[in-house]
């Protein structure tokens, strides 16, 4: 693995034909590579998720993270943009799907693309990764501790609905990475989701790591759990290696 990469901010066409900001990291040089759409967490299009995006490029994938809050706050700092988007009710599911579709299309159009595109998301992005994989034709999806798939917190706005009923439309294999100590989603909920996917014959692979809670991949947060994160990354490389590489 050479790990050489190029990273830059670009503009892509998202939901409704909107031009939105996105962060692209891709392997340097020629060759054939798969694509990964990276969905940022609720705190936004931040440095930590850009680092994750570059990590995929270092591992041989073209990775693209759309700024889901660009419409509410173009040019703003990630935390200000997250606050603005939150105050306006958050990202509608329909818009998220359109933005991921735009990002996936951009990845497929890149020179060297092998035509395969996966999606990965963290926290709220985990739920959105599942949503995208149930709404678009993709080749692989990873849900990192996405809550509110089957059950929505009682405190959530009425417009925020569970999306488990979309499971029968899942278009690709799904890798789920969860923490045993997480309550949202709790292990019982992810087990129910697994059973639901079994019922529809949808290929999936769920792992629940002991000693880890929510956001165990986040290296800049106290929730970081190095053992779970390292094992999780190994699962991701194996999964994308099977479904996206080449």
């Amino acid at each position: 693995m050479r790990e050489d990469l190029i990273a830059e901010t670009i503009t892509i066409t998202g939901h409704g034909g909107d031009e939105i900001e996105a962060y692209l990291a891709r392997p340097q040089g020629t060759g054939s590579f798969g694509g990964v759409v990276v969905i940022h967490h609720m705190p936004g299009y931040d440095a930590a998720t850009k680092e994750i995006t570059r990590k995929f490029a270092a591992h041989g994938y073209a990775a693209l993270m759309p700024n889901l809050y660009y419409r509410e706050a173009p040019g703003a700092s990630p935390d200000d943009a997250a606050a603005a988007a939150r105050a306006q009710g958050g990202v509608p599911d329909e818009r998220l799907v359109g933005d991921v579709a735009g990002a996936a299309g951009h990845l497929r159009s890149l020179p060297g693309s092998n035509g395969k595109v996966g999606v990965i998301g963290y926290c709220s992005g985990g739920r959105q990764s599942f949503l995208a994989a149930c709404s678009l034709r993709l080749d692989a999806a990873v849900d990192c501790y996405g809550g509110a798939v089957l059950k929505v917190p009682e405190t959530a706005p009425a417009s925020f609905k569970p999306i488990g009923h979309l499971a029968e439309h899942l278009s690709c294999p799904l890798l789920g990475l969860f923490g045993a100590d997480d309550q949202f989603p709790a292990p019982q909920e992810t087990a129910e989701l697994s059973q639901l996917l079994d019922g529809f014959g949808k290929p999936h692979e769920f792992h629940t790591f002991a000693g880890a809670g929510h956001a165990f991949f986040a290296v800049d947060r106290p929730s970081y759990r190095v053992e779970a994160a390292n094992e999780g990354w190994a699962k991701i490389w194996a999964f994308f290696g099977t479904h996206l590489a080449g």
Partner: peptide, 9 residues
């Protein structure tokens, strides 16, 4: 978890 709830005044 993400709570999604936002109080606004």
């Amino acid at each position: 978890m993400c709570t999604y709830l936002t109080e606004k005044i």
